[in-house]
């Protein structure tokens, strides 16, 4: 019980990070972006590449930090991966989404995002192979927190939870304390008014992709650090991340945080009742429950057609 709960909270923090980026993008660009989760994959794999590169260039930095399996090179790589992923998201927007946005409706955007997701996932497969990989070949030993009930926690998990919370706090400060944050919220609420208030829309679109890409890269690496990375990483997160944004209400950053933890914990606890094969379906059940009980989510505005 307690083990499932703790694992759920950890997964929840990763889903939350991803959901924040998705909810920001969905709120500003008004479409369900099915290619967003592939950015987790791009982030995880670019961190892997940077980590190997840095380890070869500056071997003494390829040292583990304290009890973590995280190395100094990997922690630098996370930041680089966030930048690269943000940039890839901007490039994708320029190549595909911007052009469809200008000529067609939101449904075409949803459709295109599915196509983009399929392309990205399989390019990753071609580049890195089907096989799952690990950042560090060493086994990270879990610490026994308690024997009865049995609770095992890996130091990496504690780090990931902490780092995710720090990122969320940073984003919170940016959104509520800086005019850059105000502009973001302004564009999401009313793009026309934001424009006449001096906000340049094209810049905000770029910045929302950078933010979303950066957050999802962090989520991807954090997942890889506590589990493993495979080309399916993105695909496996599509539904949990959508479920989290729907639970929280599309457009609500705090809703996404809470939604992420709810989805993570519910999926963790479901393991006590259902075989693990059904875990991928959990977010779907949560979405159905939200539709029945509170269609606009915990903090969302009403979004009827």
């Amino acid at each position: 019980m307690i083990q499932h709960l703790v694992d759920g909270i950890l997964t929840g923090s990763i889903i939350s990070l991803g959901a924040i980026g998705l909810t920001l993008i969905m709120h500003m660009l008004r479409f369900a972006n099915f290619s967003y989760a592939e950015l987790l994959g791009i982030g995880a794999y670019s961190a892997l590449v940077f980590d190997r590169l840095l380890a070869a260039l500056i071997p003494f930095m390829h040292e583990k930090i304290g009890p973590l399996s995280l190395t100094w090179t990997l922690s630098v790589s996370v930041v680089l991966a966030m930048v690269v992923t943000g940039a890839s998201a901007v490039v994708l927007d320029k190549l595909v989404f911007k052009r469809i946005r200008e000529n067609a409706g939101p449904l075409s955007m949803v459709f295109a995002s599915f196509g983009v997701a399929l392309i990205l996932r399989n390019i990753i497969t071609l580049a890195f192979g089907h096989r799952a990989q690990l950042y560090s070949p060493d086994i990270a030993f879990a610490i026994v927190v308690s024997f009865d009930p049995l609770l095992l926690i890996k130091p990496d998990q504690v780090f990931v939870l902490g780092a995710a919370l720090v990122l969320m706090l940073m984003l919170h400060v940016v959104l509520t304390r800086t005019t850059f944050g105000y502009s973001h919220r302004a564009v999401a609420e009313n793009p026309d008014l934001a424009q006449v208030s001096g906000v340049r829309l094209s810049r905000m679109v770029v910045s929302v992709w950078v933010l979303g890409g950066g957050l999802s890269a962090a989520a991807g690496v954090f997942y890889g650090l506590t589990n493993q990375i495979s080309p399916h990483l993105g695909h496996n997160f599509v539904l949990p991340v959508f479920a989290a944004t729907i639970v929280g209400g599309i457009g609500s950053v705090y809703g996404a945080v809470l939604g992420g933890f709810i989805v993570g914990i519910a999926s963790g606890l479901s393991l006590m009742i259902l075989p693990s094969g059904y875990t991928p379906a959990m977010p779907f059940l949560i979405i159905i429950a939200v539709m029945l009980l509170r269609p606009h989510g915990l903090f969302g505005e009403e979004l009827h057609r």
Binding site: A32, V110, P275, I288
Partner: peptide, 28 residues
């Protein structure tokens, strides 16, 4: 019944979810 009255995104997400849930069912 649950989704067509909502914004178009919800149907897209729910139907995607049905496919995943259906796959889990067939596999398990």
């Amino acid at each position: 019944l649950l989704t067509v009255r909502l914004r178009h995104d919800y149907l897209a997400i729910s139907t995607f979810g049905v496919a995943i849930a259906f796959e889990s069912l067939t596999r398990n």
